[in-house]
Write a protein that binds this DNA or RNA. Structure first.
Lengths: 149, 149
DNA sequence: TATTGTTATACTCTATAACTATA
DNA sequence: TATAGTTATAGAGTATAACAATA
């Protein structure tokens, strides 16, 4: 039931993101870059547990969408530092807005105290299961990939 | 958060099933066949929203595992009626047992009343979202596929 | 002609490994 | 020699369409 509701939530969220022209992994990458602009492609890739070749493709896509840009680093000319464009920042804001709407829509059948209680219970489960807050398992990780130490 | 916990639940469950040598979709197919033995491959496929060519592969796999068998239909010799073997039935029981364990493990940080409350809240959300009880979205459906009317 | 199940094929997504350009 | 990023390539997994047997 947990996974049923969770899966539904993911699906609906994915559809909302698609309306913004984004794949879930685009959103993750946008957030990572937004959190630490100027990091190198490979550094971000390691953090997101994506191999370098995948990073190339995702960054290309977001660059084509005009949301992100590669900048050259004078000190080490091999590196591409990643930055959000204005459009990228606006998109992130839109993402936040849509995500909040999504949450309200999801819990529209519950009263405020019930929502708080639900969050409390899920937090407890999450904590008990050793899940890191804010780190969404699997969004950026396909089937066969394995955890890295 | 909902989808985070849900995704985690799915992942752990998937690992438990892998210990039984099963892919999640094998489990779904086993359940469908167990629920209505003797149906044709195509009929089951339509119900699971799988194209015929995928059904061939999945049934092959479960047949190779000795959990399912195709039987010929004298009336219409094009059809293959699907049945569980004894091993298939035993496996389904094992699946039920492991799933129950999984549920207990997942909620081990909660008291009994809290678990009941969590189920109540999730049920409410599920109902409000129009989810059919017992039908797990996406387990048998990959990325690009679309709902059929 | 239509339908059941199978096989062939082409497409997408992926990770690995070769490669380039710097260091 | 090592590293950042790119490109080439091969492997899963998939859906569509051609196909054979039967109706």
């Amino acid at each position: 039931m947990m996974s049923q509701v969770g899966m539904h939530s993911s699906q609906v969220w994915r559809e909302r993101m698609a309306e913004l022209g984004l794949d879930p992994r685009h959103v993750v990458l946008l957030r990572f870059v937004g959190a630490e602009e100027g990091r190198s492609q490979l550094a971000l890739g390691r953090r997101m547990r994506l191999p370098p070749s995948r990073m190339v493709a995702f960054v290309d896509e977001l660059e084509n969408l005009g949301m992100m840009e590669r900048r050259l680093n004078r000190d080490d000319r091999r590196m591409r530092a990643l930055y959000l464009t204005d459009k990228g920042r606006q998109t992130l804001e839109a993402v936040a807005k849509v995500s909040a709407q999504h949450e309200r829509q999801l819990t529209k059948g519950l009263t405020r105290p019930e929502v708080r209680e639900l969050i409390r219970l899920l937090s407890r489960v999450s904590e008990e299961q050793g899940l890191a807050p804010g780190v969404h398992p699997g969004v950026a990780r396909p089937k066969g990939s394995k955890e890295q130490g």
